[in-house]
Amino acid sequence: MTGPMTDYRRGLWMATGAFVIWGLMPLYWHLLKAVPSLQIIAHRIVWSAVLVLGWLLLKQGTRWLRAVREQPRLAGLLALSGLFIAFNWGLYIWAVNAGHVVETSLGYFINPLLNVVLGVVLLRERLRAAQWLAVAIATAGVLWLTFNYGSFPWIALTLATSFAMYGFIRKLTTIDSLPGLGIESGYLLLPALALLLWGESTGQGHVLDAWWPWTDLLLVLGGALTALPLIGFAYAVRRVPLSTVGLLQYLAPTLQLVCGVAVLGEPFGRDRVIGFVLIWIALAVYAVDGLLRSRRPAVAAG
Rank of each mutant, 00 (worst) to 15 (best):
residue 242 L to W: 04
residue 258 V to M: 06
residue 95 A to E: 01
residue 16 T to R: 06
residue 153 P to F: 10
residue 78 L to S: 06
residue 185 S to Y: 08
residue 182 G to A: 05
residue 280 W to E: 14
residue 99 G to W: 13
residue 131 Q to N: 05
residue 139 T to P: 01
residue 120 V to F: 12
residue 154 W to T: 13
residue 134 A to E: 10
residue 52 V to I: 15
residue 241 P to G: 00
residue 157 L to A: 09
residue 135 V to C: 08
residue 27 L to V: 10
residue 293 R to L: 14
residue 22 W to D: 06
residue 140 A to C: 04
residue 147 F to M: 07
residue 148 N to A: 06
residue 220 V to A: 13
residue 1 M to N: 05
residue 259 C to L: 13
residue 99 G to I: 11
residue 180 G to C: 00
residue 88 N to G: 07
residue 301 A to L: 10
residue 96 V to T: 09
residue 284 A to T: 15
residue 131 Q to H: 03
residue 233 F to Y: 10
residue 16 T to P: 09
residue 93 I to P: 09
residue 188 L to M: 14
residue 254 T to D: 00
residue 241 P to L: 01
residue 229 P to H: 11
residue 154 W to V: 15
residue 268 F to H: 05
residue 63 R to V: 10
residue 159 L to G: 06
residue 44 R to W: 02
residue 168 F to G: 04
residue 228 L to M: 15
residue 109 F to K: 07
residue 15 A to R: 06
residue 150 G to C: 05
residue 206 H to S: 06
residue 12 L to E: 02
residue 204 Q to F: 13
residue 50 V to N: 02
residue 213 P to W: 01
residue 30 H to C: 11
residue 209 D to L: 03
residue 255 L to F: 10
residue 137 I to H: 03
residue 302 G to A: 07
residue 38 L to S: 11
residue 23 G to C: 07
residue 2 T to Y: 04
residue 63 R to H: 09
residue 107 G to K: 13
residue 254 T to I: 00
residue 153 P to S: 14
residue 189 L to N: 05
residue 83 L to R: 09
residue 51 L to Q: 07
residue 159 L to V: 09
residue 114 L to Q: 02
residue 260 G to I: 12
residue 87 F to C: 13
residue 6 T to C: 00
residue 190 L to F: 14
residue 162 S to F: 05
residue 66 R to T: 15
residue 161 T to Y: 01
residue 96 V to N: 06
residue 29 W to C: 03
residue 220 V to K: 12
residue 102 V to G: 03
residue 186 G to W: 02
residue 219 L to P: 01
residue 190 L to D: 13
residue 102 V to D: 01
residue 228 L to C: 08
residue 239 R to Y: 01
residue 147 F to P: 03
residue 227 A to R: 02
residue 60 Q to R: 14
residue 161 T to C: 03
residue 88 N to C: 05
residue 125 E to H: 08
residue 130 A to Q: 12
residue 149 Y to H: 05
residue 61 G to T: 04
residue 196 L to N: 02
residue 184 E to F: 06
residue 33 K to T: 12
residue 163 F to Y: 15
residue 21 I to G: 04
residue 35 V to E: 10
residue 123 L to E: 00
residue 197 L to W: 15
residue 227 A to Y: 00
residue 61 G to L: 07
residue 221 L to T: 00
residue 249 Q to M: 13
residue 70 E to H: 11
residue 64 W to C: 13
residue 43 H to S: 04
residue 169 I to M: 14
residue 197 L to D: 14
residue 10 R to L: 09
residue 220 V to C: 12
